[in-house]
Write a protein that binds this DNA or RNA. Structure first.
Lengths: 258, 258
DNA sequence: CGTCTACTTGACCACTATCAACGCTGGTGG
DNA sequence: CCACCAGCGTTGATAGTGGTCAAGTAGACG
């Protein structure tokens, strides 16, 4: 309780010189539109950059008044819905440069909660100011709509995964999805750290924790991956792609020759 | 083949006097915003109302150039994505007054296909004109964004269903979802016709056809529903709600007393 | 050093997919 | 008029994937 209210140093903002959109290395990812310098400054002035959010803290809660969307600067966020029965369903993991909260647009309140998986810094875009700005910058609203429809596409991809794929396929898909997202941000596609717990992964993929654990160990035995707690290395991308059902990536033989 | 190209009478448009937004009984559902009479006329003039789409015909196909969104006037549509592996996943069933094609916004092409489940009439909203009109009518774009974010919410609900619920629960959820949507349109919430086949239902719910069939017959034995091929009647809404995980609707005892 | 949580591993079994056969219905052609 | 067929739906038998339960291990932290 008290640790929520204790003052927190502006860690990221002080260490990080990217406190302006114009200098932010993520700007090409978060809202990749060609903005005039003046527009960029307007956008910039509107953004609230609060203190970092600690692991486990909520960015917003299902039912909260919808009054801002967020762009993640550093860290990672999970979003999840809570059913009437109390079950939680993680609907997505969000990495740096991604927008969170767009689904709030349909109503006055957020239809899901967002929780930090690790210490996270965000750019808060207050809704009223964003609205006003959208009226001035023609491309901006369209860009936001693109983001929304991109999220629809992604969710529908996930529906396919959940309803048609085996546990192995889902796992491979999950790892490769993360991989490509890290790569897009300039990180290694083959080695990264899982910000989320096994429980989170299992929840997201619609599996039991035990199943996730078993699959990861089996993948290791098959030399598809290597893990050391949360650090993960993808050793055999073609095979993983084949598992995930990507026929374009040439699957090597089931038994790779030595 | 040839039946696709043969001339089709303008069935619905000729029989149906609602050829204008201002007289359309669905207008309050499809884009429920307060529009000036003049704006309504502008919107109206932009809409292309083509010939009815026959059962099995495509409204648009995954990969087609994204150049319009559609509002369903009469009939029903299923939308589905095709994975690289060829598997199809039905992502939604769309009834009269609902918008289809919004997920195209994120790119130049539709990320899914839309097929008529029965003879269907639609209002086509060409994208370029819609865009132009959005710049003039402030509320319109917001309304479309609401629709999009509503679809996100819906898809995320579906993710929860697919990953956390048993076959019975999914079935109950599906029936109740349809029920409430019919009710919203002024039809009976208790008796309606399933426009989709059992195969479609099973695909949508991530189940085998046999499972769907078995559950429906069991629901009948339990006197939860009555079916006659595609006609369906919900006999015990409280119990169905309980099954679907709606704790608010009082579940009667598991065995209802005689 | 003890406690807590996260993760792993094993044994068992339930849910639901799969395979197979059959019934029903509507359309087609003899 | 009836035989035939195709598509859709139902029902039964069987088996497999992945969930559940239970116990144990490993890290993190006070």
């Amino acid at each position: 309780m008290s640790k929520d209210t204790q003052p927190v140093p502006f860690l990221a903002t002080s260490k990080n010189s990217q406190t302006h959109c114009s200098t932010c290395s993520l700007s090409s990812l978060c809202l990749p539109i060609a903005l005039e310098k003046a527009d960029l400054d307007t956008l910039d002035s509107m953004i609230k950059r609060g203190r970092p959010i600690q692991k486990g803290e909520l960015l917003f809660k299902q039912g909260d008044a919808f009054n801002a969307i967020f762009a993640i600067r550093t860290g990672a966020i999970k979003t999840y819905t809570v059913a009437a029965s109390g079950e939680e369903q993680i609907t997505g993991f969000h990495l740096a440069s991604e927008l969170v909260g767009l689904s709030g647009y349909s109503q006055e309140t957020y239809p899901l909660s967002a929780k930090a998986l690790e210490t996270t810094t965000v750019c808060e875009l207050p809704l009223d100011q964003l609205e006003a700005m959208c009226d001035e910058i023609p491309g901006l609203r369209k860009q936001i709509m693109r983001n929304m429809s991109g999220e629809i596409r992604q969710d529908q991809q996930m529906m396919l995964q959940l309803s048609k794929k085996s546990a192995d396929e889902r796992m491979a898909y999950f790892l490769l999805d993360l991989s490509s997202r890290f790569e897009r941000r300039g990180f290694s596609a083959k080695a990264f750290r899982l910000a989320m717990s096994r429980v989170d992964i299992s929840n997201y993929l619609g599996l039991a924790v035990e199943t996730v654990s078993r699959i990861l160990t089996r993948f290791q035995k098959q030399e598809l991956i290597a893990t050391q707690s949360k650090e993960i290395t993808l050793l055999n991308l073609p095979e993983l792609n084949a598992l995930a059902g990507h026929p374009d990536a040439q699957p090597t033989c089931q038994q790779h020759p030595n």
